[in-house]
Write a protein that binds this DNA or RNA. Structure first.
Length: 486
RNA sequence: GGCCCCAUCGUCUAGCGGUCCAGGACAUUUGGUUCUCAUCCAAAAAAUCAAGGGUUCGAAUCCCUUUGGGGUCACCA
């Protein structure tokens, strides 16, 4: 297999987007399995949307997910620079070439002028599009305006009457009529190139062999193909991935979904879970596997298993993956690993007593879905609780429950605080007094934790500690008295 | 609206002319284990393969039409 070079070309306009990560793993896989390179190029030609910290967020997000790259980004490489804003003179040089070969021309129409033109077109029931007013302008007039320093753009002279087609790696044969394509702006009024110009020049210069990008680019591809032709360059292979969607099927958006990679980290997801989840969006494992890591994905990914339909971003399955990977992690690396991740992610205070942690972790690791669940799952171990009378009395009447609390407290006071002893005491009590197990246990659970869903009762009591358990039972008795009085 | 892309259970998908009255996973429901929750284990329900026409001995799989959805039509990427 010939080596493939692929790339992602994110724009630093905001957050690190989950879609970028999704694109990245496919590009990474296709390149790596051929022994080629995967690179990151920063497309920062839109100064109006530029966000300074956005770029480092992208690296941080990809790094967290374990997505590595070979060139570009902060690494640099043989085709540097990898920031488009550092490549301006390159674009100008090639734009000049297009001007000379007749594939491009200067356009002095102002934005307002074009806006008015489109408005008029729409009013006349026509399609709004550039009317080519400077396409065949008098060279002398153009030169005069140039000499005067008039603001201008450079446009591509899209040939008429052409059919432009390519064999898409995912979609097969796709074709467009050139007559429907506007004379694209190549160099903007501010001297920056547009995406179309820059992407073609950079992909060629950086020897990208396979362009794997979102379906939203499919209608731009003929423009790019025209540019390759204009430059006399061999175009890369194109593959247009489906678009990840919101629940309403529209293109995934910030408004309707959490699309920030880092926010999944902050919510307590494991990177391996996120990777596994997104890998199965629009793609399926050749052996039908549901569980695999990035290394395996890179080995087996192929474009022919990419679906043409845009998958809906539904994180239900991500939750399942996360719980699964959390449990797997504990089985393989032990509870301390879970503790480490909790601390590293800031889900538990760094000064949280270690021995307490060691006692709590075995009780909750099967119950935790996200690392951020930890607090909610365990707060009663160290926080004061106020059991609700309603819950205490859920399955038994006042008299019964009060008696149960008193007598249980009495017995527990006398025993050494060991798991076996606690269990033995309570079970014996339950039997000799003929309490209903479900009622009695649940009542105690509420009295001791304030909750109806907790880890097993005896272990929980043991970890909470004798003094605290007795105090809570006492507290429960008091609450019932108050409830009785009102 | 023009152009382009797409269409299998609620969701992610398997399927690339017969082995599919459509398989798996998540979610859901039920049962088992159990002091609750969760885990784990079983099982169920869930898609007239968008609809209608063809082609074929035979179609979820090929073709056409319709419908539906999406993308794109900027001096944004």
């Amino acid at each position: 297999m010939t080596k493939k070079r692929t790339r992602i070309a994110p724009s630093p306009t905001g957050i690190a987007h989950i879609g970028t990560a999704w694109q990245a793993i496919f590009n990474l896989g296709i390149a790596r399995q051929s022994g080629g390179q995967f690179l990151i190029r920063i497309e920062d030609t839109d100064r109006s949307r530029f966000v300074p910290e956005a770029e480092s967020l992208i690296y941080e997000g990809l790094k967290w997910l374990g997505i590595d790259y070979d060139e570009g980004g902060i690494k640099g490489g043989p085709f540097a620079p990898y920031h488009q804003s550092d490549r301006l003179d390159i674009y100008h040089k090639y734009a000049q070439q297009l001007l000379e070969s007749g594939w491009a021309y200067y356009c002095f129409a102002t934005k307002q002028e074009l806006e008015q033109m489109r408005k008029d077109q729409v009013a006349r029931g026509e399609l709004p599009r550039y009317d080519g007013r400077w396409r065949d302008a008098d060279p002398a007039e153009v030169q005069k305006r140039l000499d005067e320093g008039q603001p201008h753009v450079i446009r591509l002279k899209v040939p008429h009457g052409r059919t432009i087609s390519w064999e898409d790696q995912i979609r097969g044969h796709v074709e467009f009529q050139s007559d429907l394509i506007d004379d694209q702006v190549l160099i903007k009024g501010d001297g920056f190139p547009t995406y179309h110009l820059a992407v073609v020049i950079d992909d060629h210069l950086m020897e990208i062999s396979d362009v794997l990008r979102g379906e939203e680019w499919i209608s731009s591809t003929p423009k790019h193909l025209l540019l390759y032709e204009a430059f006399g360059w061999e175009p890369p292979r194109f593959a247009h991935m489906p678009l990840i969607r919101n629940r309403d099927k529209s293109k995934i958006s910030k408004r309707k979904n959490d699309v920030s990679i880092l926010s999944y980290r902050d919510k307590g997801y494991l990177p391996e879970a996120v990777i596994n989840f997104i890998a199965l969006l629009g793609w399926s494992h050749p052996e039908g596997k549901e569980i695999f890591d990035l290394d395996e994905f890179i080995k087996v990914v192929s474009l022919d298993r990419v679906q043409k339909t845009g998958p809906i971003f539904d994180t239900d399955k991500l939750d399942w993956y996360n719980g699964y990977y959390l449990r797997k992690m504990v089985e393989e690396k032990g509870l301390p690993e879970l503790g480490k991740r909790l601390v590293a992610g800031g889900f538990v205070a760094p000064d949280f007593p270690l021995e307490k942690m060691e006692q709590i972790l075995p009780l909750i690791y099967e119950r935790i879905v996200k690392l951020s669940d930890f607090a909610e799952l365990t707060d009663f171990f160290w926080k004061d609780i106020v059991p609700e009378a309603r819950l205490l009395l859920k399955k038994g009447d006042l008299e019964l429950v009060q008696g149960q609390l008193q007598i249980t407290k009495g017995f527990l006071e006398t025993i050494p605080w060991e798991l076996a002893k606690i269990e033995d005491t309570i079970r014996t009590l339950c039997e000799t007094k003929s309490y209903k197990k479900s009622q009695y246990f649940m009542m105690l659970r509420v009295a001791v934790t304030g909750k109806t869903a907790t880890p097993p009762l005896f272990e929980t009591m043991q970890v909470i500690g004798k003094d605290q358990v007795l105090a809570r039972l006492e507290h429960a008795i008091k609450i019932l008295k108050e409830a009785d009085a009102t």
